[in-house]
Simulated assay, not measured.
Amino acid sequence: MGYRLRELERKDIPAINGWRADRELISCLGAPYRFINQEVDEAWFDAYMRSRKTCVRCAIVEGDDDILGLVTLAGIDYLRQSATLHIMIGSTENRGRGMGTFAVLFMLRHAFYDLNLRRVELSVLATNEAAIGLYEKCGFVREGARRQACYKDGEFVDMYEYGIIRGEESELS
Rank of each mutant, 00 (worst) to 15 (best):
G96P: 00
D22H: 13
K53T: 11
M49C: 15
I60T: 06
D64P: 02
V61I: 13
H86N: 01
R23S: 06
F45I: 13
R34A: 12
A74T: 04
A21F: 09
E93R: 15
A31V: 15
E42I: 04
C55S: 01
S51K: 14
D77Q: 06
F35C: 04
T54E: 11
W44H: 06
G96V: 07
L29D: 04
G75F: 07
T72Y: 00
E24C: 05
G98D: 08
T92H: 11
A74S: 04
Q81C: 07
K53Y: 01
D22V: 14
I60K: 09
W44E: 04
Y33A: 08
S27Y: 02
T84H: 08
F35N: 11
M99I: 14
G63K: 07
G30A: 06
L85T: 06
T54I: 06
M88L: 12
R52H: 02
R23P: 01
N94W: 12
A43I: 10
M49L: 14
D77I: 07
I36Y: 05
L68R: 11
D64M: 02
N94Y: 15
I67A: 06
S27L: 03
Y48Q: 01
Q38E: 15
T84F: 00
E62Y: 03
I60A: 05
L73W: 06
S82C: 11
T84Q: 09
D66M: 09
L85R: 07
F45N: 09
K53R: 14
E42F: 05
I36R: 02
G98K: 06
V40Q: 15
S27F: 04
Y33F: 14
G69F: 08
G96L: 12
I36G: 11
A21D: 13
A21Y: 01
Y48M: 01
A43D: 08
A74V: 06
S82Y: 01
G69V: 12
Q81H: 03
T84L: 03
R34L: 08
